[in-house]
């Protein structure tokens, strides 16, 4: 996955650079006139596709998720079952569609949890007193060292296996990374001369945060959150693979993989399709993050 990304980035920039270099001589350039980075377009298309499928699944799926009497068991793709059926005869496409919705719900909600928690902790650590910084960072370090899986098991033990348990587990452990990134970036911006210049011209704490810190930090954070979203899709798949995610009859890509494991040699589609779905969603979120970075980084914007 990462290998794929690192090869995508230079190519994307290589395409972007010559297009931007001739530029429009002088004058103001409008944001809309510039070409969108390819990674942004492809990422948005992949995520948009998964989101659309997930949205449709909320209202309609070809078959009910627990309908076992729809035809042959462990069948390959056919006109009646585009994705084939599983060992109980349930329609695979219906489960994949519902899985798409669940994957993105978990990704979005855990991004929200991680974002709110992480940014709050990161800003407090980066922009206030030193002892607050040290205290919060030791907490964050503990959380980073704490395995997500163990945290998930703890939460599931307390709250029972459900989508929201998965969300809290992934969100809380993701917040540690967001807190670190926020703190580093807030501290970096606060050290810049433009913040000193702002202070020397009478800009107060809030003005500094709103005018300088937030605009300089949010693109990095958004990229980080998108990467976290990709990680969340993977984490949700792992948790439900282990039975710590949403319980049946609700569908999840991770559980589809787990169920297909024993019948993979008989009917490989049951494993291939959810696998591909996971790759598409994670790749889409990662590309989206990369594209946002390319779009918002001022060092990649305008003339040099």
């Amino acid at each position: 996955m990462t290998g794929e990304l690192t090869t995508t980035t230079p190519v994307a920039r290589g395409v972007e650079a010559p297009a931007a270099a001739p530029g429009r001589p002088g004058g103001a350039r409008s944001r809309g006139a510039r070409r969108l980075p390819p990674s942004l377009v492809v990422g948005a298309a992949l995520v948009g596709f998964v989101a659309l499928v997930g949205l449709v699944s909320l209202f309609w799926t070809p078959y009910a998720l627990d309908d076992t009497g729809t035809g042959e068991r462990l069948a390959g793709p056919s006109a009646a079952h585009w994705g084939g059926t599983d060992r109980l005869g349930r329609d695979l496409l219906s489960q994949l569609m519902t899985g798409a919705g669940n994957a993105l719900i978990v990704a979005a909600a855990s991004m929200l949890v991680a974002g709110v928690l992480g940014v709050a902790v990161g800003v407090l650590a980066g922009a206030t007193r030193r002892w607050v910084d040290v205290t919060l960072l030791s907490g964050v370090d503990l959380l980073i060292a704490f395995p997500t899986l163990l945290l998930a098991m703890l939460i599931v033990t307390v709250r029972g296996a459900s989508l929201s348990s998965a969300i809290w587990a992934i969100g809380i452990s993701g917040s540690a990374v967001i807190a670190r990134v926020t703190r580093v970036n807030v501290a970096r911006v606060l050290r810049e001369d433009y913040v000193t210049a702002a202070h020397a011209s009478g800009t107060g704490w809030w003005g500094t945060v709103l005018r300088h810190v937030v605009p300089n930090v949010w693109p990095t954070l958004l990229v980080q959150l998108m990467l976290l979203g990709g990680g969340a899709v993977l984490a949700e798949a792992s948790l439900s693979y282990l039975g710590l995610g949403a319980p049946p009859p609700n569908a999840s890509w991770g559980r589809l993989l787990q169920e297909a494991q024993s019948t993979m040699l008989v009917q490989p589609w049951g494993a291939i399709l959810p696998g591909v779905a996971i790759v598409v969603a994670v790749l889409g979120l990662n590309l989206l993050g990369d594209g946002i970075r390319e779009r918002t980084d001022p060092n990649l914007r305008g003339d040099r």
Partner: peptide, 11 residues
């Protein structure tokens, strides 16, 4: 300031 790369907010 010394370095206008750092003293002007890039955004």
């Amino acid at each position: 300031f010394q370095d206008p790369r750092s003293s002007l907010d890039p955004r």
